[in-house]
């Protein structure tokens, strides 16, 4: 998986540079995210603005990453495309992830004024 990490204070921003989180890469994605987020203690923003497709296996991996962070840390999904939002809504998982409309680069700039 192509995952690009940057930090804003203790907020970790991970951008997914692959265009799919699907059954073919779900386990790899989950393992890599767990390894990456294991380094920090703060909340995590996953920038999915470049992700064109997520299936239920990919969604399962996202939930696994969220569960590994709970209860002390949160996982936000930033800038999901319409069909990814639709999947989150259909499965009611939009209520368990924080959804950010903006890409995190913009959010980070806003944080720093």
């Amino acid at each position: 998986m192509q995952l690009r990490t940057e930090w804003v204070d203790d907020l970790m921003i991970v951008r997914v540079d692959d265009d799919r989180i699907d059954a073919a890469v779900a386990i790899e994605f989950k393992d890599e995210m767990r390894a990456l987020t294991g380094e920090g203690t703060g909340d995590v923003v996953l920038d999915v603005s470049r992700v064109r497709f997520v299936d239920s296996s990919g969604l399962g991996a996202l939930v696994a990453v969220l569960k590994a962070l709970l209860p002390d840390r949160r996982l936000a999904l930033a800038a999901p495309m319409p069909n990814v939002r639709s999947l989150l809504s259909l499965t009611r998982m939009d209520s368990v992830f924080q959804i950010m409309a903006e890409a995190p680069a913009a959010a980070a700039r806003a944080r720093h004024g």
Binding site: S56, S57, L59, G60, A61, V63, A64, L66, K67, T91
Partner: peptide
């Protein structure tokens, strides 16, 4: 939280 089981429902 379930980590799957949505396939057939979808």
């Amino acid at each position: 939280l379930p980590e799957g089981g949505w396939g057939w429902a979808l």
